[in-house]
Nucleic acid binder design. Sequence first.
RNA 1: GGAGAGGUGGCCGAGCGGCUGAAGGCACCGCUCUCGAAAAGCGGCAUCCUGUCAAAAACGGGAUCGUGGGUUCAAAUCCCACCCUCUCCGCCA
Length: 424
Amino acid sequence: MLEIKFVRQNLSIVEKSLSDRGKSVDLETLKACDVRRKAVLLEIEDLRRERNTVSDRISQLKKAGEEPETLMQNMRDVGSKIKDLEKILDENEQAVIAILMEIPNIPHASVPIGKDSMDNPVFKTVGSLPEFDFTPLPHWTIGEHLGIFDFERASRITGARFPLYFGAGARLERSLISFMLDTHTAGHGYTEVLPPFIVNRTSMTHTGQLPKFEEDLFKLEGWEYYLIPTAEVPVTNIHQGEVLDEDRLPVCYTAYTPCFRSEAGSYGKDTRGLIRQHQFNKVELVKFSRPETSYDELETLRENAEEILRRLNLPYQVVTLCTGDMGFSSAKTYDIEVWMPAQGVYREISSCSNFEDFQARRANIRLKRKNKKGTELVHTLNGSGLAVGRTVAAILENYQQKDGSVIVPEALRPYMGGMEAITP
RNA sequence: GGAGAGGUGGCCGAGCGGCUGAAGGCACCGCUCUCGAAAAGCGGCAUCCUGUCAAAAACGGGAUCGUGGGUUCAAAUCCCACCCUCUCCGCCA
């Protein structure tokens, strides 16, 4: 959420941000309600001041043994007037907040302006593409040949877009989770956390999934609880309402969680394979940073995520999301895209964002400077490190052999009990 | 599910209708003392909104003691509902 003061004073910046993102919000209503709110507030404060001073006088008179009935009657009237005005104030305030909640974050100056993913510039390309002397198969075909996953049975258990792994496939998924967590904890200094997979409405609002994107979430019937679409939600909310010491920052967490997404509006997209599932595993990186270093932290966070692909020897590219393609809460986002030989495209496997103080304002996460009065909002960042199902897909496709087997990347072999290849 | 206790500033903790935006302590900042540091002494130290103002400072006003309602001229303090934490009992992986 942006600060109302900022919006008021920088309306043109907000308007530009919205148009760069290709979004629109009713700023006229926002302005009108804000002005009305202010006017009513002044009126209320006047009345409250009167009540406070007169109440003091009543108290003194009573001590002197008097019963100031007229004054008390007057204050009764003032009280009910205040109550009426407070109702109007509240209505306008709610309207302001509701619209404010719909305004996405302001993109950082370095974010390219563009309409959609076609306009995302490539930031870097890493690794060389594998060459095959046969036509590389898509990962779902490879996986079915190997007998390591079974989408048909999964759909009978639940429905479309759910994973079911067997044997070396299940092991591969689990190995990747451990490998990623170990790399980020031992290698990159993150603290491992295992958070709840179900969160309340407040937490979802803090990180920006709500109120705008309710239809993307799975909600528990009869509860104001939601299945998490990413570990970002529970992990960022670890410190909601807290004041962090300056020298504790940056606080860096990594968490494995399953993620649940309704994928509303993506019917017909990626219908086969592991790319788009209602449930998938992900290892997430989350940082709480000082404002002045958050963009450096974004670069290292992105490097930390890339490191997984480098150690697995998977070719990838990094793109900078343009204004039109960026998420609601983000000020700047890099997508890391892994090479998928069968489709001949790079597919998103990680998204690394700096939210600046957008989430911190909603979640009220602050920092206290050593020699300074008061507190200020921290910056929050996160990125996948990485999406596990998509990593499995990438390994299957990039490491596939002519005979249908798949080589296990060397970095993973210790986690796979020394297994060098997955064979049918 | 049943029975209790509790949620107060960066932290601990007192207060339980008006003199309390909140005692005391810790932490933090400034000064004194010291060659310096420690200790000690003195002083300062919540947040947000808002008015005068070009702005800052300063000063004035308002709000905030888990959240939301209510009682009252007046609520951290009384009443109701909800949320959360803790203890005990029951049930259970």
